[in-house]
Amino acid sequence: MVQQQAALLKPESLVAEFKKNGVTHIVTIPDSETNYLYELMKDQPWLDVIPSSREGETFAIALGLIVGGKVPVCVIQNTGMMESGDSIRGMAIDSGFPMVMLIGYRGWTRHGVITDSAARYTETFLHAMGINYYLLETDDDASRISVAFEEARAQKRPVAVLVGDEYHGFNRM
């Protein structure tokens, strides 16, 4: 039980990864799974959070930020990622710039049967778009964000990080 608690995905670990990789902006629509992360991000003086109205906006805003010399991350849910298909195509993939997206993996579970179609189509969608991705399940996986940044910068392409667990709140433990 103690080991399981230690492995829980903490928002502090993700924010530390953002800082390590020089992230300046988070373009986001909060969801229930990422609320604790949102609260922590807003408290960071070095990080500017841009709340958007629809997920398709996030990739275009991120492109503008990148062109302007900043380092954004798009933080959205898998449902919103699928809504953003044309924006991901035109503003992320076709742009030829590195872009990291953190995607809440709603409905995913390693155990049992996945019944939520949002989860069932998430990886299929990423495969169709030719976007590589990494999965975060526990706190030990947080360093995969750095791997995603390295890959995005080397290939000048978008790379996704799927968050397969709710964040366990820094102020809610």
Binding site: H25, V27, D48, I50, S52, G56, E57, T58, F59, A60, I61, A62, L63, G64, L65, I66, V67, G68, G69, K70, P72, D86, S87, R89, G90, M91, D94, S95
Partner: peptide
Amino acid sequence: LQGAMGQTNSAALGFALA
């Protein structure tokens, strides 16, 4: 910064913030 339907305004905002 054209390239996706209806999103040039979003990209322009991103650039203005940067």
